[in-house]
Nucleic acid binder design. Sequence first.
DNA 1: GGGTGTAAGTGATAATAATCACAGTAACAA
DNA 2: TTGTTACTGTGATTATTATCACTTACACCC
Lengths: 224, 224
Amino acid sequence: MDSMIRQFYEIPGKVVALKAGEYLFREGDHAKHFYFVRSGQIFITKFAESGRVLSLRLATRGSIIGELPLYEENPVYIFNAVAQSPSEVYAIEFPTLHSYLEKKPALAINLLKIIGMHMRKQHSKFRDLVLYGKKGAIYSTLIRFANSYGQKVDDGILITVPLTNQELANYSATARESLNRMLSDLRRQNVIDIRDGLILIRDINFLKQEIQCENCGREICNIE
Amino acid sequence: MDSMIRQFYEIPGKVVALKAGEYLFREGDHAKHFYFVRSGQIFITKFAESGRVLSLRLATRGSIIGELPLYEENPVYIFNAVAQSPSEVYAIEFPTLHSYLEKKPALAINLLKIIGMHMRKQHSKFRDLVLYGKKGAIYSTLIRFANSYGQKVDDGILITVPLTNQELANYSATARESLNRMLSDLRRQNVIDIRDGLILIRDINFLKQEIQCENCGREICNIE
DNA sequence: GGGTGTAAGTGATAATAATCACAGTAACAA
DNA sequence: TTGTTACTGTGATTATTATCACTTACACCC
């Protein structure tokens, strides 16, 4: 993916720095820029009028953001992007990107590859949720976080992003209480553990088995 | 979308005719071709080991099919494509499409637009299901079918595709019995009706209201 | 050290949806 | 006409998940 980053840097744009908690854009905003992340982590979320929050991605170095409205006639962001930690993104205006895509087929093809991968991620999440219910959604979210932000330690995989129960629940479209109960169960079964406020996955294969993981690979099965 | 079709015809490929019920490809098959539909209707589905079927799209004239593995290193179809009615598709081999995409930026950009649109469809479906449960999934499916295959009649919109309860249930990841009960309720409330085995939507606004439809437009909110 | 705020954990209950087990219906073929 | 088959409709029950109403735990500040 690093070749992708280099390619985007050849396009004129500007660097935007975000403090933790700062919004890059909100759903409904008029969309002018395509972004990719240089550093930090950025939550991609969606609000429901009921007050519920749906979390979709946690973008990191190399992730692209705000690509969906790229070719809309009236471009509007459909998600929120908010920095989880201090972050830097590279912002490219849509018209600029348009002209580069027209001139550089390799760039367009790379973007096709990336968006195709996003599509597959989305499909696999949909499958997990739809076929295995909330359990599918939660286990799948844990596996994805492990693939994106997991660090191998001697007794498992440590998810290096601090996440509250509420945040995890938002990723799996679950009530906080339900998520909490499922995590407690997993803890009782020694599948996961909490270490200094971070989740340690002791037995990722258990999670994969339960949702009939298709082993689609880390390129697809992640949260970025 | 017709300009898209013309553009694809400039690429060498072959026409494949399918009888009703015939499979174009199955999930797990090695993927060699990108297809677009010339005529007829093609179900895009996915199987769960449990025997359940998940229906994702009903592709029609102008829809593209089998695009997801286009740039995979080991390309495999992740869905099934099966003709609902006698159909014709145009098949283009991946390497051929690759070379045309490299040479013709306009083609790549068009494909970007199409795939971006698919992405938005998928997101909006995900949202409907996740935020409004099975009711969201079912109402959303009805609205999408109405947008894709609806025909205005004096007392509503007639969905011109014959669908069994089971098929509709597959689209909304619901048990047949649950779907049946919801349709019965809607019938009682005069929101829908059954006419010669086809669904007539009398009050589409009721459906839209219930799932807080964001009025994303027919380009997005469809089943193709 | 006590107060405050935020997150985690949990029981009870309600709402939603799946499953099981049939009965009814309609289309079609023998 | 009578089977046969596939689909529809429905009651009863169970399973899953959300909601409500708390208690507990922990970090941080004054």
